[in-house]
């Protein structure tokens, strides 16, 4: 009968209305949701006791990797052509040490492993010039970034300098480290 059918329809509607919101009860899965600022801490040893090298993580991110130095080296004056920068570049070109390799850190494959390639680092105002006994023209971007960042952070605490790589073949245009420090969020 039509009337019975309509009543059935009504009951079904009622059930849907009643149980629709309740069927999704309990705790649902969500997508990935932004949870606000990251954690910020002082992870690095004091500037005096470390060199800051830049290696790539296994997933390809360029990371600052501190390496403790045995003898504290004096923090060079601003603009000085300190051995600190040259030492950092030298250490970078030597590649990650055992502990760093164990942690999966590595250099870009295109970066030559020749510690002696670092000639000297000249600081000239906002620009640091890194002279290398290498051919830099064909150096790919990941390798260049490692060199640029290491030199920049060695020369300047916040890495806020441009770095020009000068090879045996040519001089590259000054470049900034792609890893720009961001203002640390206030707690």
């Amino acid at each position: 009968m039509f009337r019975t059918r309509r009543a059935g329809l009504l009951a079904a509607l009622l059930a849907v209305v009643a149980w629709g919101p309740l069927v999704g009860c309990g705790v649902q899965e969500t997508a990935v949701i932004d949870a606000g600022r990251p954690a910020v801490a002082d992870l690095l040893p004091p500037r005096e006791g470390r060199m800051l090298l830049f290696f790539y993580s296994p997933s390809g991110e360029l990371l600052p990797v501190p390496r403790i130095v045995e003898a504290p080296w004096p923090v060079p004056a601003e603009g000085a052509d300190g051995p600190d920068a040259r030492a950092a570049v030298t250490a970078l070109l030597a590649g990650p040490d055992t502990a760093e390799r164990r942690a999966g850190l590595r250099s870009a494959p295109s970066l030559p492993r020749s510690a002696s390639a670092a000639d000297r680092v000249v600081t000239d105002g906002p620009t640091v010039e890194v002279r290398l006994r290498l051919r830099v023209a064909r150096l790919p971007a990941p390798a260049r970034d490692q060199l640029v960042c290491t030199a920049a952070f060695a020369a300047h605490a916040q890495g806020a300098v441009s770095v020009s790589l000068v090879g045996q073949d040519e001089r590259l245009a000054p470049a900034d480290c792609p890893l720009r420090p961001v203002p640390a969020p206030v707690r």
Partner: peptide, 29 residues
Amino acid sequence: NGSFERVVKDGKAYLTIGMPVLTRVVAGG
């Protein structure tokens, strides 16, 4: 930034939070 995600696994709900850690280059910097 940090992220979180609710996950239901084997009928149990979990809150998972992923928190990248930033480090100051110099203290207070």
